[in-house]
Design a protein around this nucleic acid. Structure first.
Lengths: 156, 156
DNA sequence: TTATTTGTTCAGTAAAGACTAAACAAGTTG
DNA sequence: CAACTTGTTTAGTCTTTACTGAACAAATAA
């Protein structure tokens, strides 16, 4: 799977780098994004050592970032009959858990704002109105994300 | 507007701190979040100096963070008849521009993935399938966000 | 049994980001 | 005119994050 022509290799390498940048702009380490990119574009599973060699990164970074992605349910660790060591591949619903994590943060934020709004004196009408608008933003965003999950995961 | 009872002050201060934490978890500086919290919970507009004094932060931080938020169209800089200096208040559609910025990043990511997918050899069916799934994720997310904007901004 | 492999942990380094106080320049007030 | 205010910029500091190479311990192979 690592034997392919030079032009394709450039496409693959470029994609992996870009995935690193995309993921970094979403708040995760660049190497995590490069691992995702590798697992997406080349059929796996990939061994721990393969990832380190292919992406030219330290084993420590592979350990840290695969663990992070595994905890986020984006990738999964598998074993292979007759082979030593761990292998990684994209998990089944790689993006659902990300969405769910996002929803949790929104839910918490919405709750915080609601509590503050309710605690304010009644005479603070303008403030309450502004807080209500922000709360509504998070509430609608939550609903929107729920629908998105439905759309993505009821089509299979 | 800064003269209110002790209990309410605690509610306000707590809210401001919490907004700082919420905004930080979304990738912006904590101080930006505290400025938002202040502008939301106390009716403004607030002068540059008021913000620095009220939040106990340096003038340099006020400058940096108000500029950041102004660039994101979350707050706006206004002047007041008969008063020196700049004042800030929440902008009209504070959250729309954030959503639009998010949509831009998604659109760009989706495009990157599409291009990589199309450049791959036809025989890379499994890879293309995975890339297609990721592209679909971004596409649906984009649609979802568009609908969210519609929902939020056609109700006024 | 020794050597090698494997994945984790640790100590260290570099970079980036956040924030400050001070300097600066422009504008305003006394 | 001098003093003060105002917002920006700069240099510096601190914290956090990301990453490395080496050490470590467990498992496996020779």
């Amino acid at each position: 799977m690592s034997n392919y022509e030079e032009n394709t290799k450039e496409i693959v390498d470029s994609f992996i780098e870009q995935m690193g940048m995309i993921t970094q702009s979403e708040g995760l380490p660049r190497i995590a994004g490069k691992i995702i990119g590798l697992l997406l574009i080349e059929s796996g599973p990939f061994s721990f050592s393969d990832i380190a060699a292919r992406l030219q990164i330290s084993r420590g970074s592979v350990s840290t970032n695969t663990r992070l992605l595994e905890n986020l349910s984006v990738i999964e660790r598998v074993s292979k009959l007759g082979e030593r060591g761990d292998f990684f591949q994209m998990s089944q619903d790689p993006y659902m858990k990300l969405l769910q994590g996002s929803m949790q943060r929104m839910s918490k934020a919405s709750q915080t704002i609601k509590e503050a709004r309710n605690a304010l004196p009644d005479s603070w009408q303008a403030s309450q109105k502004r807080l209500e608008a922000l709360e509504q933003f998070y509430t609608e965003y939550l609903k929107s994300t729920q629908k998105l999950i439905k759309t993505l995961y009821s089509k299979e």
